[in-house]
Design a binder for these strands. Sequence first.
DNA 1: CTGCAAATGTTATAATGTTGCAAATCTTGC
DNA 2: GCAAGATTTGCAACATTATAACATTTGCAG
Lengths: 163, 163
Amino acid sequence: MSSRALPYRPHNHAACVSQALAEAKAICQQQNARLTPTRERVLELIWQSHKPLGAYDVLAKLTSEGHNAAPPTVYRALDFLQQYGLVHRIASLNAFTGCTHAGEHHTGMFLICRACGNVLELMESSVTTAIENAASAEAFQPEAITLEVAGLCPGCQTDQHHE
Amino acid sequence: MSSRALPYRPHNHAACVSQALAEAKAICQQQNARLTPTRERVLELIWQSHKPLGAYDVLAKLTSEGHNAAPPTVYRALDFLQQYGLVHRIASLNAFTGCTHAGEHHTGMFLICRACGNVLELMESSVTTAIENAASAEAFQPEAITLEVAGLCPGCQTDQHHE
DNA sequence: CTGCAAATGTTATAATGTTGCAAATCTTGC
DNA sequence: GCAAGATTTGCAACATTATAACATTTGCAG
């Protein structure tokens, strides 16, 4: 088995998605939040791609499957999912990606491949700590950290295998 | 004198702006880049605020002073200024701020006060190193780092002095 | 089953950013 | 100087991303 992290190594993505959905249901139930059909479908669509999806990409998929959706439909679902830590917004891409650490309290660090578009979410306490220390040194009280690293993923550094 | 960093402590902002402009001129001259009047004016407008300005804010100021400008005018100037490291784009705000380390090769870390809107740019090699190490551990080759921390600046943590 | 709160539908619009092409300006080699 | 090519700007249209406002429906508690 490869030592490379998901999503770079091959895996059963359908299982990976259904597990994420199951976890999402559990989290919502636990917090008395309603994971309605639309919200669940949006979450599933986002998870089906390791590449971040734009809100209008999600909208297009919804309408293509007969859902009578408008932009607010999607943005509201995304707001909900973000609120419960089920998806993250990637500010540098104006796009959304499934949270791979849902439920855990964390600050995500995103490795975004500019070639294949895949995104890997990391949780690195050493990074978070360094950032918090730097903020402290300026007497700044951090609340939210946006950390997005663009570059080349292992699979795209040498070949043309841009999925 | 306060130990707090600019822009939190009071200072002669006009001087601070004109120094930034002088440095910008030097940097452009050194690299055979043309800091045309429009580009220089955009840079000055951005520097006159410690708060990031949106592209359309810049556009509004230009048109209000008689400049016959359209969105591309501003975006092209901003592209140029970013290319030479004279301004940074803050992805989480869709806005631009003057680079306080122009000329130095660096990765900026931005402390963004959600109350007063001021932004402080830091250069912390310990943070950069931690991020690069985390990326390395995933065999990811970083090219650009977006690091934006939202929270409360020293002046806004206790009082209502939201400038 | 009624009344409130939450969620959704619907229309319109705001905010942000880009493309394409023509005109003007600057620079460079001669 | 000056013609030729490259860079910059003007301009119009358009594309993308996100929100506002308000009516309607749905789910849930009393």
